[in-house]
Amino acid sequence: MDEFIATFFNVEVIRAASPILLQGLWMTLLLVLVAVPLGIAGGVLLAVLSVFRHPAVRWPLIAWVDFFRAFPPLVLLVFIYAGLPFAGIEIGAFGCVAIGFFLNTSSYYGEILRAGIESIPRGQVEAARSTGLSAAQTMTWVVLPQAVRNVLPDLVSNTLEVVKLTSIASVVALPELLFQARQAQSVTYNPSPIVAAAIIYFLLLWPFVRLLSRLEHKAVARR
């Protein structure tokens, strides 16, 4: 038992690793603060564009969204990281991760918001337009506020996935939480830093999992 604790919950090791784990946590949070707003902004754009039925908008949009939803995010990230320098573009690991996350997550946010927009009865749009509101004003004041509320559980759920997905940034040597934990593990020859990182992820995400549960219950109750 002592050996088990010394191996997986080694307080000494975790204490020694805590400064770099903390650095990793900040990087993870910074990544979330960049990736989530970028993804949501891109998603809103994709969802709003999906309202246009014109083939010149519709088919490229479907191709775009399908492509990035089918493309494994890890492969996408490695491709951007390894590929862009060959195109003469040097933007560093953080830039690569930001681009990869934008391409991947905006497609998911876009599909969720599109479903939200489509859940709003056509009659409300007609009513708004009949009072002289433009299409953009109708989208902004009538459709989107309700659409977001209707798909809020899915948006929160997707955001949780995005936060968890930030750990793949470790493969391009971005010093986020998982990367730092692995560094500490390889230096100390002890897996405790990984366990510590796992606990940090859990503590970070668990409140949002609870929130999601409550939102989903409310959504069911509303039906």
Binding site: P121, G123, Q124, E126, A127, A128, R129, S130, T131, G132, L133, W141, V142, P145, Q146, R149
Partner: peptide
């Protein structure tokens, strides 16, 4: 032009996320 043409629909089509006053003030 449309703001000079009022329209009332069979299904009312009020905005459910706004109060009665909010529905009237939006436009």
């Amino acid at each position: 032009v449309r703001r000079r043409i009022g329209m009332v629909f069979q299904q009312f089509n009020l905005y459910p996320h706004m109060t009665a006053r909010g529905n009237v003030t939006l436009a």
